[in-house]
Amino acid sequence: MAMRWRRGYLRVVRSSFATVPFYRELWALSGRTEPEVVPGRTGVDGGAVRAAALAGRVGDLVPLAGGPTEIDPLRGLGPVLAEHLAVTAGTLVAVVDPGTPRPPVDLPAGVRSCVLDPSGLAGPYAGVLDDVTDHLRRGARVVAVGGDKDLDQLAAALPETLAHLVTRVPVRDPDDLAAPVGPHALIAHPLLGVLGGLGGCGRWHIDHPRVYLRATPAGPAYTLLRQRSPRLVDVLAGHGRPGWCPRHGTPVVEP
């Protein structure tokens, strides 16, 4: 498992060096480690990049052959919900976030979704809130994803008899993994999307088929293994270090 995960990462590094202007420039002229792509050049922070360094450079994250430039802050939500909450057809996923421009695109088949701005629940989003309420009345499952305060605002706007039926899935920034959470939670980053979730074992599991985590001198660096464009490789986010879950045998991030 560990070797296969590592091989996927090495493929992404090689391909990014060969085709993506941002990484070509960074790693050819400065260098990187694990692996080195230009012998003898080790770069700064092992070749990892801070998210701030990518601001205004999204065009350079597109491979030479072309590709989309949109950043999806909800990328990876579907697979992580399916893995950690067994979200199935008939469930409604409500994303409660003032900054989310569009609904998630990678939910499992048959799962509906909607986006709610918590400040507009009594205004422009009242119709969407009615839809959520109807769903709960019918006894269907509603999974609400968002920040703690945003989820509280949603719960306050729902009828008291229904609010407790909502499955709350608070979102944590990689910086904030040490804070206490309930049974469900996600790790998400505005640039990288959803990186993993809280497992049944209480550890922060990485969405390892899609995300690689590596320790660098500047902290943990995340790589999206399946997003071709914009390519995000070794992006520094939050604190902690990579580890392995002794119960599941899969990668985790330890706060």
Binding site: F17, A18, T19, A28, V37, P39, P63, L64, A65
Partner: peptide
């Protein structure tokens, strides 16, 4: 091809 040249080594 839409690739940069290989490293010179």
């Amino acid at each position: 091809r839409a690739r940069y040249a290989d490293a010179p080594t």
